[in-house]
């Protein structure tokens, strides 16, 4: 089985939900034309990222976003076949605002199906970031079934903590789709420093867990902060299948063949080792957490 993915490295219109919805329709039409099954958009793709106190004004419930995405898709592709979509947005959920990403299946004929909403767990609140001031923290790293196989979503800093990918892999994810709005820092190398760092992270996750890893990053500027781009699709052996530019929009199209998973897992079965040791590690982890909280260790 193959998953043909289209990753939209875009610059959202700042603070304009309606304009970004319309853009989504155009992107969906292009993804369908390219023969793709899944279209991914970056973190906070329906509003832009650095909204500060205005997050409350652009946040929507996932069900509203789903209906709006579906309407936009049907307007752009009246005879469109089923298209899976992954979209980052500020979510209103149980009266709190979250930095979320939804995964859904849209079609012209059938009702849209919301398969999963991931709420960002690690909210950067340092340096240029101030997320925890404005949005609530998610608590779960879930995995869910799609027509292409078990899948997980991580948002930006979620990816920078190795345990999130490990949890997703233990839950059986074959695809880990990541999205970001990552402001570029460090201009000494060929690409901004964080673009290179992201690629290292993606390849490391793919190789450790023998999973497909995609990263859909945004570009464009918000008040002087330029987003780094560098979207990528990485095969389970760490091979880079597609890579976006650091400046400028692009639609990355790649074919993820599930046969590649078994090849990678046969060659380097670290995932099996992790599954076997995970029980012991869970005990160790709980112990370490108690220690870190100053509650002493188990005798």
């Amino acid at each position: 089985m193959q998953l043909r993915i289209a990753q939209a490295q875009i610059s959202p219109v700042f603070g304009d939900y309606a304009a970004n919805l319309a853009r989504f329709g155009e992107l969906a039409a292009q993804a369908v034309d390219e023969g793709c099954d899944l279209l991914t958009l970056p973190e906070t793709a329906l509003s832009g990222y650095f909204l500060e106190g205005a997050v409350i004004e652009v946040a929507r419930p996932a069900t509203t976003v789903l209906a709006d995405l579906c309407a936009s898709y049907r307007a752009a592709c009246p005879a469109g076949r089923p298209l899976d979509v992954l979209v980052g947005f500020y979510e209103l959920y149980e009266s709190n605002v979250y930095n979320s990403a939804l995964y859904a299946t849209l079609s012209a004929a059938d009702e849209p199906a919301l398969l999963h909403v991931h709420r960002k767990v690690f909210l950067p609140t340092y340096g240029v970031f101030d997320e925890q001031r404005f949005v609530a923290r998610g608590h779960r790293i879930g995995a869910f079934d799609t027509r292409f196989g078990r899948t997980a979503i991580l948002i930006c800093e979620d990816v920078w903590h190795s345990m999130t990918a490990a949890i997703a892999a233990l839950r059986g994810a074959r695809f880990i789709h990541t999205v970001s709005s990552s402001p570029a820092r460090g201009f000494a190398g060929e690409v901004p420093w964080n673009v290179g760092k992201w690629l290292e992270l993606l390849q490391s996750i793919a190789q450790e867990h023998a999973v497909f890893v995609t990263h859909t990053a945004r570009v464009g500027f918000e008040n002087g902060k330029g987003f780094a781009g560098g979207s990528a699709a990485v095969a389970p052996d760490g091979r880079i299948m597609a890579r976006g530019p650091s400046l400028g929009e692009a639609l990355l199209c790649a074919t993820l063949d599930l046969d590649d998973l078994s090849v990678a897992r046969a060659n380097q079965p670290l995932g099996t080792d992790l599954a076997e040791a995970a029980g012991d590690l869970a005990t160790e982890f709980a112990d370490a957490v108690r220690e870190a909280r100053g509650e002493g260790t188990w005798a």
């Binding site: 304009d16 500060e52 205005a54």
Partner: peptide, 12 residues
């Protein structure tokens, strides 16, 4: 301090 909006935030 409390009312924080980015310089270029202009919703419809």
């Amino acid at each position: 301090e409390s009312y924080l909006r980015p310089t270029d935030y202009a919703p419809p």
